[in-house]
Amino acid sequence: MINIGVLALQGAVREHVKALEANDVNIVIVKKVDQLQELDGLVFPGGESTTMRRLINNYGFYEPLKEFAKRGKPIFGTCAGAILMANEIVGQADPHIAVMDMKVERNAFGRQRESFETTLNVKGIGDDVPGVFIRAPIIQAVGEAVDVLAEFEGEIVAAQQGPFLACSYHPELTDDNRMHQYFVDMVRHAVSANLA
């Protein structure tokens, strides 16, 4: 069975675990760096990106996470998780883990009162994917190697670059597990490609 971790420094960890459980995978709640060794894929949950980054630094996760990505191991980030993955953040001098060639803008739709639910057309998944946007970022621009998976009102809200998947909404808050299934397939693919 493949091992998928959920980075559990802060945020909606339990919801990701629940969404992954439907997929016959072994789930690891990651609080310590040495747990990364056993993983085939990793989820960066929603939460507060500044808080997560601070804890990533405090617990020496920064280099090991970059290394994890460099080895081509799949990562899936939702909302704050997507911000951690971007190599450029509007209004901020430095990015976080910076594994995807994309520029994100934090809180792009406004404050909490502007948070909303909608239905999205996500490439490779379906035209009826629930999108829960909570103080959500948008992906302002992407590099050539990045595949845009979904847009809302003309803004990019989901993208993939090889083994890396990011979305600005929260599939983990809904009962629709298709985004997670898609990610699990990415992980299985990466594992079998590695064996071959």
Binding site: A8, L9, Q10, G11, A12, V13, R14, E15, G46, G47, E48, T51, C79, A80, Q112, R113, E114, S115, F116, E117, T118, T119, L120, V132, F133, I134, R135, F152, H170, L173, T174
Partner: peptide, 22 residues
Amino acid sequence: MVKQTGTDLVKRGMAEMQKGGV
């Protein structure tokens, strides 16, 4: 596409994102 603000999911979800935090 319909855009709904202030739903239970959006309001409760916001609090879910604060979990494990101070």
